[in-house]
């Protein structure tokens, strides 16, 4: 069991790291040949950073768009963020001080995370328009995250796991050795699903996380008259048609 989980996590980690690196590189090197920010758009780079921060932190466009999705979606993501920050303690000998500060909030965040997920799931089934656009994978994604959260809560409130042992296992794992895995059903469920999450991440719609930063309608400065914007392939096209 210990070997299995150590190997699974090495594999999953490799997949997400390499997968994301590949995708981010791909986004990075693919040009956006035309200026297409959705206007009104900021006219300076600083303005773009501010616009992007609002999108990522408060989901500004979504807020304009649909309050229900916003409430559930934002609740889920902010909770996810707190939960993950709280999880840093499994990987650190001496957690950073802010990781300690958010420990108590993180605990409640598990509830809001699960509520947010349930809200999104219900919406997906109940609203005919959203049901129409949903593929099986869209439901499965929510179910997977729900069970990660749910198994986490079980460990927290019902069937406690030995946190110290988990920590030791992962500390060993990070040093590329195999420690003793504290076998318990909720932890097995939790970690199997987490591994699955890491593996599907770079191949699924979870690419929205890096994607949002590369979206030309959100990350471009509105200055086409002041500054000529030209992609490499477009410049080559120009040269060829001249010569």
């Amino acid at each position: 069991m210990s070997t299995f989980f150590a190997l699974l996590f090495w594999f999953a980690t490799a997949v997400i790291v390499l997968g994301l690196a590949f995708k981010i590189r791909q986004y990075w090197v693919t040009p956006a040949p035309l200026k297409i920010p959705t206007t009104p758009a900021p006219t300076t780079q600083a303005g773009v950073v501010y616009r992007m921060a609002k999108e990522v932190i408060v989901f500004e466009s979504l807020f304009k768009s649909n309050k229900w999705i916003w409430i559930f979606g934002w609740m889920f993501h902010m909770s996810l963020f707190l939960v993950l920050a709280r999880h840093l303690r499994y990987f650190q000998d001496q957690p950073w001080f802010w990781v300690n500060i958010i420990q108590p909030f993180g605990k409640y965040a598990a509830f809001t995370m699960v509520i947010g997920l349930v809200g999104l799931f219900v919406r997906r089934i109940v609203v005919a328009r959203v049901r129409y656009i949903s593929a099986p994978s869209d439901y499965l994604m929510l179910i997977m995250l729900f069970f990660i959260g749910f198994s986490g809560l079980i460990m927290n409130y019902v069937s406690h796991v030995d946190i110290i042992a988990v920590k030791e296992f992962f500390n060993a794992w990070m040093g590329f050795s195999i420690g003793d895995f504290p076998v318990s059903v909720p932890l097995i469920v939790h970690l199997s699903l987490v591994a699955l999450l890491l593996i599907v991440f770079p191949f699924s719609k979870l690419l929205h996380a890096p994607g949002v930063f590369f979206s030309p309608t959100r990350n471009q400065v509105d200055n086409p008259r002041e500054k000529r914007h030209i992609a490499k392939w477009a410049a080559e096209l120009e040269n060829n048609s001249k010569g």
């Binding site: 995708k23 040009p31 768009s65 649909n66 959203v130 929205h208 979206s215």
Partner: peptide, 24 residues
């Protein structure tokens, strides 16, 4: 086209089917 337009690639990858656009 995917190699020429980053927007296309990012848009095709990123949609989470949240449904916010469905009534727009």
């Amino acid at each position: 086209t995917l190699q020429k337009y980053r927007g296309l690639r990012v848009f095709l990858d990123s949609c989470v089917k949240c449904g916010a656009c469905t009534d727009k």
